[in-house]
């Protein structure tokens, strides 16, 4: 059941680093994070990795496994051949701190730039009424565990540092969509999406949706509908205004 697995793990810091080879025990049912932990406990006690719940709920242990953005805790060893060498590297889009840990502050900055939920003024707490079908659209986006794998994989910023200023990335464009589709939000989000968060940069290649560990349809359900709303608005603002005012 157990075997000796071959691993290459990136080690280093902001001044540089390299892949380091390890041979380490792998047991039945384990995930890649288990192996990283075994390395820490037996061979590399100061190997830096960010993790928390180890149950796919917190989105801390994002990294790239054989070049593919994934959660370390949700990647089972059984998806690899026993003879395969497994390469684990940090997310490429964010600056390195050490080993597998990157500086994800870009995401927190972008989160702060999205204007918050604007509650209806005429409803007191406890008076909110919404139908399940109406909340479901935004609920899908609220499944997001902020692992930032979509941000990492998005080619608008992946190798284009220069776009980071103007582009919030799929995670936060989806946040804008979530608020736009919230049945009781009173703010106008459509122009913001285009002007402040760079929706126009997205050319719907769906890379973000593909890597989402929560299987959220980021492109189909958030980004494309937002693009449509932007297009509608440009076309006929009166229609948009009517929709917004009389939707409730």
């Amino acid at each position: 059941m157990s075997y000796q697995g071959k691993f290459r793990v990136w080690r280093g810091d902001d001044s540089g680093g390299a892949l380091e080879d390890f041979t380490v025990e792998v047991n039945e049912g384990e995930v890649v994070l288990d192996i990283i932990h075994r390395l820490q406990a037996t061979q590399a006690p100061d190997l830096a990795v960010r993790w928390n719940c180890k149950a796919g709920k917190c989105g801390s242990c994002s990294a790239e496994i054989n070049g593919r953005p994934r959660l370390l805790c949700m990647t089972r060893m059984s998806v690899f051949e026993e003879s395969e060498t497994i390469t684990v590297t940090p997310m490429r889009t964010f600056p390195i701190i050490r080993d597998l840990v990157t500086d994800v502050s870009f995401n927190y900055t972008k989160a702060r730039e999205v204007p918050s939920f604007a509650p209806p003024k005429d409803l007191a707490p406890g008076e909110y009424r919404m139908q399940q079908v109406d909340v479901e659209r935004s609920q899908e986006f609220r499944k997001c565990i902020e692992c930032f794998l979509c941000q990492n994989t998005c080619h608008v910023v992946r190798d284009h540092e220069e776009n980071k200023e103007a582009f919030s990335g799929p995670r936060f464009l989806m946040r804008v969509a979530e608020l736009e589709m919230h049945p009781l939000d009173t703010a106008d989000r459509v122009d913001q999406a285009q002007d402040d968060h760079g929706l126009g940069y997205c050319n719907i290649t769906k890379c973000c949706s593909e890597v989402c560990p929560e299987h959220i349809h980021i492109t189909d359900n958030a980004l494309i509908p937002m693009k449509e709303r932007v297009a509608d608005r440009k076309y006929d603002p009166i229609v948009w205004l009517g929709n917004k005012l009389f939707r409730r």
């Binding site: 918050s116 509650p119 919404m130 139908q131 909340v135 609920q139 608020l179």
Partner: peptide
């Protein structure tokens, strides 16, 4: 009022 969306 902070924006939570519970099941209905």
């Amino acid at each position: 009022t902070y924006g939570a969306l519970f099941d209905r």
